[in-house]
Amino acid sequence: MMKVNPALCNYCGACVGSCPVNCIFLNETRVEINEDKCVKCGFCIRACPLGAISADWWSK
């Protein structure tokens, strides 16, 4: 499961452009992750400058 913490998210799109399978969608107040397409690379988690994205398979 992936989670976007709305208290941290700045809706900047860093995660969207970094996602190699284009499974993140953003509008001005919402980030949606299509986990069926997700390949668990962790790019979005590391690309988020504020650390707003977490996942149960990501430990760092």
């Binding site: 860093a14 969207v16 452009g17 970094s18 190699p20 284009n22 953003l26 504020l50």
Partner: peptide
């Protein structure tokens, strides 16, 4: 549509970046 480059990828254009070519900014 900027860094997100979603429209391109919907159209089948490859704008996927390797991690060395992505810079995260604050």
């Amino acid at each position: 549509d900027g860094f997100e480059s979603q429209v391109a990828r919907w159209a089948g254009l490859n704008t996927v970046l390797p991690e060395r070519d992505i810079v995260s900014c604050i």
